[in-house]
Amino acid sequence: MRITNQIRRNQMLVDLERLQTDLYKAQTVLSSGREVERSSDDPIRAQRAMVLRSSLAQRGQYLENLRTGMSRLSFAESILMSIDDLLAEARADAIKVSNDPSIPAEKEAVAQSINGLLEELLSNANSRQDGAYLFGGFNTQEPPYVAIRDEETGDITQIVGNSTHMGGKIMITAADDLSVQINMNGNEMFQTGLPGDEGDMFQALIDMRDALRIENNEEAIALLENSIGLIDNSLSKIHTGMTDLGGRYNRLLSIEQSHLDMEIREEEDLGEAEDGELAEWITRFQLQTVALQQAMAVGTQVLNSSIINFMR
């Protein structure tokens, strides 16, 4: 084979260019940590990275949804807990008076206290979180319960529920194709708004307060005991509600855990899809550096050797 000066020079340039390209790749992988910087580096891995990134974004949103859901559920649960307390207090007071209803002043004092608890219940039923009423279904901007008051005393005589969208179920998306209700509706808890409602919490307290203001002791006791029965119904509804809310909370908690597990796995997969194996690339980088130096040394030596060096 006839090797001319240009062949030697071209070959050296081609080799150096190739080695420098490889070295550049190794250098960028090592400085960025990423092996797949653009789709054309490896279309299959790049597409996998895109899918994972999109999935991670969606999962992040699910986690955000779950946090919102859990905050709503636990807030509603804490309100039910305070209602539970106030109903229990009303019940205990009523029982105490029904045992000995002889002192009218004491009866009135208890009636006053029950009235206070009634106001407290109303306020709890109209609770808001971040400006939205909790127990009104979709009707989050108007109070779900409105009191009708005696014009002289200002005492509540009746509580009327706002029936618009009272039964609206507010859902969160917890995972693909999985929705969970995160609100509790007032018509399931406080009053159905239907005639003959045995579980009307407001009415139970109104009846109890009014019973204590009846002078005839026997009549008062009968009505009082009747209202205690209604309170018992209410308490059991509250307990069921708390169990329901707690159950849903725990469900969200376990969904959250599985999302967190999946998130870790997907992040690992994403790393696998686009990141380079550092140890491998460092070795490659070192080998390529040596190869480049070798090529330069050999190349310059070859280019320098000519018959001219030996001519007089």
Binding site: D42, P43, M50
Partner: peptide, 12 residues
């Protein structure tokens, strides 16, 4: 994603 991947393949 398929579109991006196709462009990547064509470039590659």
């Amino acid at each position: 994603q398929t579109m991006v991947s196709n462009i990547g393949s064509a470039t590659q």
